[in-house]
């Protein structure tokens, strides 16, 4: 249910960015200390927070742009660049580190052609290293678009990336988008 709402918001946000930001600010305006929830909602609507969005949010909320900028650059959650079609977060918690998170990151980089913290040239994958996803007994762990996958090996990574590529090609086809792949 919640997911569906988010998707609806996504579409309206992309079509009507100004309106979407205004609506988000209004939703949180009555709260004390609303800056972070506002920015979080903007990111979940657009996938990232651009300098232009900060300016709009500042106009509507009255919070200085500098303050919003200071928050976005302080907290790891915020991205200032758009992300690829699929977001992969690689857990680098202690248990995953011991279980070979580095190898998992390396094989993901190899398979997706995205660098850690970057997006692949074809725009299909973004790769992020994160602190701990809290699934230590299933280390090493990644999340693919919020779905957690555990007990990984480089082999399984290969399979996951392949399947994701297939799925995203299928989705693109279903939406009638021409792909050159």
């Amino acid at each position: 249910m919640e997911h569906k709402n988010m998707n609806n918001l996504k579409i309206s946000a992309k079509e009507q960015p100004l309106f979407a930001i205004m609506e988000i600010v209004q939703r949180h305006q009555a709260e004390q200390g609303p800056a972070i929830p506002i920015l979080q909602d903007i990111q979940s609507a657009f996938g990232y927070v651009s300098p232009q969005m900060l300016e709009r949010a500042s106009e509507f909320s009255g919070i200085p742009v500098s303050e919003l900028y200071s928050i976005v650059t302080f907290y790891a959650q915020f991205r200032m660049e758009p992300i690829g079609e699929n977001l992969i977060q690689v857990c680098h918690g202690t248990a995953c580190h011991l279980a070979g998170a580095e190898k998992i990151t390396e094989s993901l980089q190899f398979e997706t052609k995205a660098s850690a913290g970057g997006t692949s040239p074809d725009g299909k994958f973004s790769l992020e290293k994160v602190a701990c996803l809290g699934c230590c007994s299933l280390a090493p762990v990644i999340t693919l678009n919020e779905e957690t996958n555990g007990r990984l090996t480089p082999d399984k990574i290969k399979k996951i990336v392949k399947e994701t590529r297939k799925l995203s090609a299928k989705n693109a086809e279903a939406m009638g988008v021409c792909t050159d792949a």
Partner: peptide, 26 residues
């Protein structure tokens, strides 16, 4: 009320956590 942390380890420290709920750098 629920406040979602935005990914800063230091916010587990209580005064940093307060700053974060108040909408500032933690």
């Amino acid at each position: 009320f629920i406040r979602e942390g935005a990914g800063a380890f230091v916010c587990g420290e209580e005064t940093a956590l307060l700053m974060s709920i108040e909408g500032k750098r933690g």
